[in-house]
Deep mutational scan, measured.
Amino acid sequence: KSPLTGYVRFMNERREQLRAKRPEVPFPEITRMLGNEWSKLPPEEKQRYLDEADRDKERYMKELEQY
């Protein structure tokens, strides 16, 4: 499975939280809201997602080498 970027990891995590709080909001609007939230997120909060993405990318590269 391909590695996910930090942005995609953030979107996946927050999308479920936002949909639970506001189920009436259409999917494209949720994506737009989360995109704005990501762009305003402080670098230190973004870093968690970026670090997870880096670890996932390393895992993926190792799997490719073994293939």
Rank of each mutant, 00 (worst) to 15 (best):
K57F: 03
E65S: 10
Y49N: 01
R15T: 15
E45R: 03
P28K: 15
V8T: 10
E16C: 02
R19K: 14
R22E: 14
R19G: 09
N12E: 11
K1W: 04
R14T: 04
K46P: 01
A20G: 09
K57C: 06
R32V: 08
E13Q: 07
R59F: 09
N12L: 09
E24Y: 06
E63H: 08
E45M: 08
E24N: 13
T31A: 07
V8D: 15
D56G: 08
K46L: 03
E44R: 06
E44Y: 01
R55I: 04
E44L: 07
R19I: 14
F27N: 15
P28R: 14
F27Y: 14
L64S: 14
E63I: 00
Q17T: 06
E58V: 09
L64A: 13
E29C: 01
P26K: 09
K1C: 00
V8I: 13
L64P: 14
K21T: 13
Y60F: 09
P26Y: 01
E13C: 04
T31F: 00
R19E: 10
T5D: 15
R14Y: 05
S2Y: 09
N12V: 06
P23N: 05
E63A: 07
R14I: 02
Y60E: 15
P43R: 12
L50I: 03
K62H: 05
R32Q: 10
L50T: 14
Q66T: 13
E63Q: 05
F10C: 01
E63L: 03
R22N: 15
V8E: 15
F27T: 15
S2Q: 05
R15P: 02
Q66M: 11
A20L: 11
F27C: 15
A20W: 04
L64R: 14
M11W: 07
A20D: 09
L50W: 09
R59N: 11
V25S: 05
K62Q: 10
D56Q: 04
Q66D: 14
Q47Y: 08
V25N: 00
N12S: 09
E24M: 07
R48D: 06
I30W: 05
L4T: 13
E63V: 05
V8R: 11
S2N: 13
Y60W: 09
F27I: 15
P3A: 09
K46V: 03
E65D: 14
L64I: 12
I30C: 04
E52V: 05
T5A: 12
P3Y: 13
E65A: 10
E65N: 12
Y7W: 08
Y60I: 09
P3M: 08
T31G: 06
E45V: 01
A20P: 02
R32P: 05
K62S: 09
Q66P: 11
K1P: 00
P3T: 10
R15E: 10
G35S: 15
Q17V: 11
T5K: 10
E16A: 07
E16P: 08
K62Y: 06
K21A: 13
F27M: 15
K57M: 10
R59M: 10
Y60G: 14
R55D: 15
L64C: 13
K57G: 09
L50Y: 14
E16I: 11
Y7R: 11
E13P: 00
A20V: 10
K46G: 01
E65I: 01
M61E: 13
E16T: 06
Y49L: 02
I30K: 02
R32S: 08
E44W: 03
A53Q: 10
P26V: 00
P42H: 02
R48P: 03
L4N: 15
P3S: 12
N12I: 11
L64Q: 14
E63M: 05
P26R: 06
M61P: 13
E58G: 09
K57L: 03
R9F: 06
R15I: 13
Y49I: 02
Y7C: 09
K1I: 13
R55S: 11
I30N: 03
A53I: 04
R32D: 07
L18P: 00
Q47D: 01
D56Y: 00
A53S: 09
R48T: 07
D54P: 13
P23Q: 07
Q66A: 08
A20T: 03
E65V: 10
P43T: 11
F27A: 15
P42W: 00
R19D: 01
R59L: 08
T5M: 11
R22T: 14
S2W: 02
K46H: 00
R19C: 11
R48Q: 09
R48F: 03
L18D: 06
R55L: 07
V8L: 11
S39Y: 07
E16V: 02
I30F: 05
P23E: 11
R9K: 08
R14F: 03
P28Q: 14
K62C: 11
E45T: 07
G35D: 15
D56V: 01
P23V: 07
R15H: 03
Q17C: 03
A53D: 05
P26I: 01
E58A: 11
L4C: 08
D56A: 04
V25Q: 09
P23M: 02
Y7P: 05
P26C: 03
R14S: 01
L64F: 15
R15W: 08
G6S: 04
Y49W: 14
Y60S: 15
Q47T: 11
A53G: 14
F27R: 13
M11I: 10
R22D: 13
Y49Q: 04
P43K: 05
Q17W: 06
T5E: 07
P43F: 08
F10M: 01
Y60C: 12
T31K: 08
L41S: 01
R19H: 03
L64K: 15
A20M: 09
E58H: 07
F27K: 14
E52F: 01
K57Y: 07
E65W: 04
M61C: 11
E16R: 06
K46Q: 04
P43H: 01
A20E: 10
L34F: 00
P28Y: 06
M11G: 02
K46A: 04
F10Y: 11
R55Q: 12
R48C: 02
K46S: 00
A53L: 01
Y7N: 02
V25L: 15
T31L: 04
P42V: 00
Y49D: 02
R9G: 03
L50G: 14
R9T: 03
L64N: 14
P23I: 05
R19A: 14
L18T: 02
R59I: 12
A20I: 10
K62D: 12
P3G: 05
E44C: 05
V25D: 12
E58Y: 10
D56I: 00
P42K: 02
K57H: 15
Q66W: 06
M61D: 13
P28G: 14
R32H: 04
Q66C: 09
Q17G: 07
E58Q: 09
R32M: 06
N12G: 04
R32T: 08
K46T: 01
I30Q: 08
E44N: 08
D54A: 12
P43S: 04
K46N: 00
T5N: 08
V8N: 13
I30T: 06
T31N: 13
D54E: 13
T5W: 02
E58N: 08
R19W: 11
P26T: 10
Q47E: 09
P26M: 04
Y7M: 10
R55E: 13
R14D: 01
E44F: 05
M11K: 03
R9V: 10
Q17Y: 06
M61W: 08
A20Q: 11
R48S: 08
V8K: 07
R9E: 02
K57Q: 11
Y49V: 04
L18G: 02
Q47W: 03
K46I: 00
E13A: 06
K1F: 15
P23F: 01
Q66R: 07
F27G: 15
A20C: 07
I30D: 05
W38C: 00
R9Q: 07
L18K: 13
E65Y: 02
Q66V: 09
E65M: 08
D56H: 06
T31M: 08
E24Q: 06
E45Q: 05
R19T: 11
P43D: 13
S2G: 04
E16Q: 10
T31P: 04
L18S: 02
V25F: 02
L18N: 01
R15G: 12
R55W: 08
A53V: 04
P3Q: 02
E13H: 02
R48H: 10
